[in-house]
Design a protein around this nucleic acid. Structure first.
Length: 307
DNA sequence: TAGATTTGACCCTG
DNA sequence: CAGGGTCAAATCTA
């Protein structure tokens, strides 16, 4: 598909443009000095400009590569055989079978505004890390069918692949959902990757319910517990904000699962998980309440590719 | 004690 | 039959 046309895209675009202008100004200011004096800084300014240009190009033309909507599962959903189902009352259903799945890669936080309850963990062949199975905490209360699977990437230990199945029929992410529905805006999954510098801090995986002390309950019990790192990490983010890249999600249909994912309070930055983001990056003046994180994709890691 | 997690077993699908 | 998804009893925790 073509360029991003979401409000978030315009905001991100504005940010990058502003960064580019600042870099251009810096470069102009450095023109006066001797090459020996400002050589390195000028290179840096040029690099920033290049990054901004590439980010803009990506923003307006590149397809998303980190979030993939899976229109259907590999396995076909089997039509439950009536007779067989009756003879086997405990037949297990594949909640995700035949439903829309949305895969998201995330670092740092599993927070998406919903309360999940882990119901299983499985070692996956050819995968170093087990796959964790979560379902909506309201499954039993109101039959919310939403589930998600979380698996740590083998290649990048700080990266987690989250696959969402089913729609939330519960009222979680209520405000966002309501606003979303009112505006009839098809939100898309938001992915934000923080630099590899954060990898070490994720040794205690937010999704691992064992081996990391009290981290086991963070997902289900403390939706707001998983936030961005503070201090040095935040500084790192500040540095990297000059290299923002937004990637189009045009290839990803805004299906139910996507809407479900996006229906978290993240939409309005209401989720504490994202509050540090806006503050640390000092995007307030840009972001304000209108910044639609969910519609965008910001992958700080990808910046390395453009340097 | 209620609710969440763990984990082995069961079940489904290719 | 293997691999993967889910169940549910046992266990843990606040």
């Amino acid at each position: 598909m073509a360029a991003l046309v979401t409000p978030a895209a315009s905001v991100v675009s504005g940010l990058v443009v502003r960064g580019r202008e600042s870099a251009a100004l810096l470069e102009a200011l450095l023109q006066g000095g001797s090459p020996q004096e400002h050589g390195g800084i000028r290179e840096l300014a040029a690099e920033i400009l290049l990054c901004c240009d590439r980010a803009l190009a990506a923003l307006h033309g590149r397809d998303g590569v980190h979030a993939v909507a899976l229109a259907s599962r590999k396995r076909k959903s089997s039509e439950p055989d009536g007779a067989a189902a009756q003879t086997r009352p405990k037949r297990r259903m594949r909640a995700n079978s035949g439903s829309t799945a949305t895969r998201v890669e995330k670092r740092w936080t599993a927070e998406d505004g919903f309360i999940w309850r882990k119901y299983g963990q499985k070692e996956i062949t050819h995968s170093k890390h087990p796959r964790l199975y979560f379902r909506c905490s309201y499954k039993h209360d109101i039959g919310c069918p939403a589930t998600r699977q979380v698996q740590q990437s083998d290649d990048d230990l700080s990266l987690y692949v989250i696959t969402y199945f089913g729609d939330h029929t519960c009222c979680q992410g209520d405000g966002a959902v309501a606003a979303e529905e009112e505006e009839d805006v098809k939100m898309q999954p938001f992915v934000i990757n923080f630099g590899s510098a954060t990898a070490s801090s994720t040794s205690g995986s937010p999704w691992q319910n064992s081996d990391d002390g009290d981290g086991r309950s963070e997902i289900s019990r403390s939706p707001q517990a998983l936030c961005l790192p503070e201090g040095g990490e935040a500084d790192g983010l500040r540095l990297k904000v000059t290299k923002v890249e937004a990637t189009s999600f045009d290839s990803q249909p805004a299906g139910p699962a996507a809407a479900e994912l996006s229906s978290s309070p993240d939409v309005s930055c209401a989720s504490p998980a994202w509050d540090p983001l806006s503050s640390c990056l000092e995007w307030d003046q840009f972001v304000e309440s209108s910044f639609d994180f969910v519609s965008g994709f910001i992958d700080f890691d990808d910046f390395d590719l453009y340097q």
